[in-house]
Simulated assay, not measured.
Amino acid sequence: MNSGEWTWQWDETLFAGSAEHYAVGRMEYPAELAEVLRSELGLDGRGRLLDVGCGPGSLTVLLAPLFEAAVGVDADREMIEVASRRSSTIEWRQLRGEALPADLGTFRVVSFAQAFHWMDQELVAERVRDMIEPGGFWVHVAASTHRGVDGDDPLPHPRPPWDRIDELVAKYLGPVRRAGQGHLPTGTRGGEEKVMLAAGYQGPTRVSAGGNEVVERSVEDVTAAVFSLSSSTPNQFADDLPAFQADLRDLLTKASDQGHFSERTREVAAVIWRP
């Protein structure tokens, strides 16, 4: 999708009710990612990290030990509440990326993960540029952590039946992807590279980490993964939530190996820009 087609408008219900599910249902970023970024960026424990659109703090907590201090910001109040319970040494703030710089100061690294596509990209890229200290970096972590890689190679347990899960969601919510109180018939916004170059950033450099690890997931984990998505948050189902939960559990229980699934993790890529 190009920027001219982007018509969806932010609203506070985008991830309503999903924060607790997000923290459980999204697979962890590989620990190797922190080491790859430490090496690529020359991180030595100095400076500050700002994680924008931090959600429940998954990436923030992983990268924070590489810096003197870390700040995580997210527009969703419940996400910040969950993140605050994960770490008391990180500063957590509820605010949108568009509200930056918000007197937060400057940072050695500003990171984004699974969030930049929800923002006014041109505005955020411009405002963040002056928040990055000389020699610092913008890091966009591209990942899909709610589900693993599709395939038919043998695993210890069955893969979650994602096609049938998607069909069940569509049965309740309709065939057009939901997003808060609106819809995204053509998906989320792309075109980050064009935005970054227009905003005066240099790059990008791309690195990757993890992937191909086999993980075990429970019926509860997969259920949480479904509810972690903006297109199927608990809030989206309204009065139909109990019925959907019952149908989803029935589907997953029948498809699992005594409540167990296996998935192969995806590679996580990091795109690095310099102001």
Rank of each mutant, 00 (worst) to 15 (best):
A70F: 06
A142W: 04
L173E: 07
E40C: 13
A225T: 02
E267C: 09
L252H: 12
G191M: 01
S88H: 11
R177M: 14
R86P: 03
A255D: 06
P175E: 11
W10F: 14
Q94L: 02
F261W: 04
V195E: 00
T188M: 10
G210Y: 02
A225M: 04
E126L: 09
L37A: 12
R129H: 09
G211M: 01
V73H: 05
S208F: 00
A34E: 00
A255N: 08
T7Q: 12
V124T: 08
T145P: 04
E192M: 14
S208H: 07
W6P: 00
L50E: 11
I90D: 00
V61S: 10
E20S: 15
L252K: 14
R274I: 05
G187Y: 02
R177H: 09
T145Q: 13
A199N: 10
L197Y: 01
D240I: 01
S218M: 06
E133K: 10
D120T: 05
V195Q: 02
P242L: 05
T223A: 14
D257L: 10
Y172L: 09
L197H: 11
H183M: 06
V71E: 00
S230L: 06
Q94C: 13
I80F: 06
E28W: 04
G211S: 02
L252E: 03
V207H: 03
G200K: 08
D247M: 11
T253E: 12
F227M: 13
T60M: 07
D130F: 10
R266E: 00
A83E: 04
G203D: 07
M196L: 15
